[in-house]
Design a protein around this nucleic acid. Structure first.
Lengths: 219, 219
DNA sequence: GTCTATAAAGAGATAGAC
DNA sequence: GTCTATCTCTTTATAGAC
């Protein structure tokens, strides 16, 4: 966690002008650029231009360009993990815990689309040490998802002919990569998308045996 | 299609020595590097070193570094599209066509893992013109997948409360991103993975009503 | 078709004034 | 905390011999 950029190292900056501290603007602006152009293709010149600063001024807030990428990855994963944990804690049955997990994951990643997408695609641009730290965080989240799946398998809700590992990775693929095509102006908003994914993951794409929707009990 | 690198512009090169022409080795070596390090992080020096050539010699086979990325993307999409089309054509029912599609997609993308992964993650590094061409190819493939899904919906096999578009994009997310974690040394080989995905996509993760596997009739 | 040598541009990062 | 100015390194790509 050393060398990271934090949104509010100094609380007094928070109230100045635009409402967002420079470090926070730095991270979100960087995430926008990294996501649309790639980390390596984004120059510090571009970044400083978008922030209305001189290139050299960036180095008051960071030590290296890579610090930005590292902080973006950590923030994104912490955000998703804590949201997913909170949602799951509120749910009361194995099936509804899975629905809650999906809703927490989808809404939190779409809220921080740029950061989450950057984390997903640019991990390999981090130094080995930091990549290791981020991968550990990612594994922590995957383990959490897997524990929710496993509980549902043990209680007879989910099939056991597909391993918990496969169900976990398959579910995360389904959820994560929707940021590539999800649009705020599309047919669904983020909670509707989450519920559609939950229906697809749980019940599959095939029509239910007799039109009995096994979808009773929203939350 | 101009300025592309083709595996065998000159058929006589094919038989020389290692069995693979220089252009073909160039593309597969580049894809390996682009996938593991990213396109922008991969230098022409590295590439030439792995090929046992001098840096300048690369420019006999290509005009710019970007040509490699472009050719990799085009080849990957053509390969997947033609394989998927062939598999679907052999199948005889709407449900089995979906299973065939999944098998074709998974096996062909895992065969050319490096190229397909590069196509998925590095599209944004292409010039606008070429990105447009590749996106058009990708759309062509997506349209094909969607047509298979739509046919199954119309014939009553797939549910219609989730749009064909959502089912298509969800399915492709599930399938595409497994290259991030699939390993030849894992519990499943690529056709087993494909069948697991087909079971998950079609029937969902929830246990079937009375343990009746709706999975009868392999192909 | 591959080589040596080099051109030309752009990158990340630092020094030190204000 | 931001500025101007600059350093140093690496990159892609080309010229021209063999």
């Amino acid at each position: 966690v050393r060398d990271s950029i934090r949104p509010s190292d100094n609380p007094t900056e928070e109230t100045s002008g635009s409402g967002k501290s420079v470090p926070a603007r730095l991270l979100s602006t960087a995430a926008g650029l990294f996501w649309s152009q790639g980390y390596a293709n984004t120059t510090t010149r571009q970044l400083s231009r978008e922030l209305g600063l001189q290139k050299a001024s960036l180095y008051y807030h960071m030590e290296k360009k890579e610090d930005l990428l590292y902080s973006i990855c950590v923030e994104s994963l912490r955000h998703t993990l804590s949201r997913a944990r909170a949602e799951v804690a509120k749910a009361t049955s194995p099936r509804s815990r899975i629905q809650a997990l999906i809703r927490g994951h989808v809404t939190s990643t779409l809220e921080e689309k740029d950061k989450h997408a950057t984390m997903l695609t640019e991990l390999r641009s981090l130094s080995p040490d930091r990549r290791g730290e981020v991968v550990a965080l990612r594994d922590e989240y995957e383990d959490f998802v897997k524990s929710v799946i496993l509980e549902a398998q043990r209680s007879g809700v989910l099939r056991e002919d597909l391993s918990a590992k496969l169900l976990t990775l398959g579910l995360l693929d389904l959820l994560n990569w929707s940021i590539f095509w999800f649009s705020e102006r599309g047919e669904l908003d983020s909670t509707e998308l989450a519920d559609a994914f939950a229906a697809l993951f749980l019940d599959g794409a095939v029509v239910s045996p007799d039109g009995i929707p096994s979808n009773r009990g929203g939350a």
